[in-house]
Design a protein around this nucleic acid. Sequence first.
DNA 1: ATAATTTTTTAACAAATGTTAAAAAGATTT
DNA 2: AAATCTTTTTAACATTTGTTAAAAAATTAT
Lengths: 188, 188
Amino acid sequence: MHRLKRFLQQKFQLPEKDWEMIKEYFQLQFFKKNEYFVREGKICRKLAFIAEGVMRYCMFREDGTDITCFFSYENDFAGDPESFFSQKPSNKNMQALTDCALITLSYENMQIILQQYPQVKEIFAAIDNLVMTKLLNQRTSNLNTDADSRYREFMKEYPHILQRVPQKYIASFLGITEQSLSRLRKNI
Amino acid sequence: MHRLKRFLQQKFQLPEKDWEMIKEYFQLQFFKKNEYFVREGKICRKLAFIAEGVMRYCMFREDGTDITCFFSYENDFAGDPESFFSQKPSNKNMQALTDCALITLSYENMQIILQQYPQVKEIFAAIDNLVMTKLLNQRTSNLNTDADSRYREFMKEYPHILQRVPQKYIASFLGITEQSLSRLRKNI
DNA sequence: ATAATTTTTTAACAAATGTTAAAAAGATTT
DNA sequence: AAATCTTTTTAACATTTGTTAAAAAATTAT
């Protein structure tokens, strides 16, 4: 819990007393490696702050290929905003790649917070912006270069993830096969 | 102007009287084909609603390659949110690909609206969500398939854009060269 | 209309990545 | 510790995409 508090205070100057008011609406939940936090076809009923662990946002194509859209780890958010805010079934999955500690907020509790403590709306909006910016930059960074450069950039940008997740997921994130990734790693 | 009004009313149920109050803060601006709305290194001082035209969000690599991150057209938004909200220089460009009619909102005017008409905040937040969702799905759709499938998916998803912009931009959006795109188009 | 510029196509060859299959290495369970 | 399962590497060959250069087609400017 303490991690979320520190994050909100440092990044968004959430006042101590506001934290005291809203903290009871959050719940600390643990997910084992490979468990799913969001499932295709089901409604995403909670958003989460990742206190500990690495997760991936992924899709499964009809032909069986498994695509990692992106990774999230400590101090980032998890969940499918599209499904969460609309409370309609998600078309994506979010999976824990390590044992994870998530601080979750249910849809109902979010409603309560927004109604009772409207000053917190600004923070929710700021988080939205943060996530949007992350998405914008991610799309940007790995386009139009060969797999080798993409992997080098990945190593620079996400050194923390590199050690903690199987290469197959990194490969699918980069848009190549695990064999290709293994091959290009030889030349580095 | 009328297009923005209709959009906000239909999508977000903006009340007529709210529109009457805020409309004076927007400005109708025209951009000629190939002109830039956002420039790398400059602060994005306005956000825009695209009333007419097609734009692209792009980057120029040091090696001279020109990357199209994505396209936007009628009823979508334009501008670099990261630069706009932080009022720091942008690292991206937004270029008109056809003659465009934009309904713009300056940073100063946004501040005024948010202060004087706080009920509009919800709509701004909803727009943020809309943009985020678009970004999420875009990242998702064109990963881990060959260029041919990506192009076919692009045709399905963005039939409007197809006819209106040079193929080289579509190629750079798909992550291939214009020659490769031309080649695969032969087989369709 | 003509000229100039930009965009699209074509082709031959090079380089990168996919596919398949198998072995090796590493991790996890019994 | 052994057995099982998962991940990573390797290799040969096929396919896709990039590169270079040039011509053709389309668009824009004079």
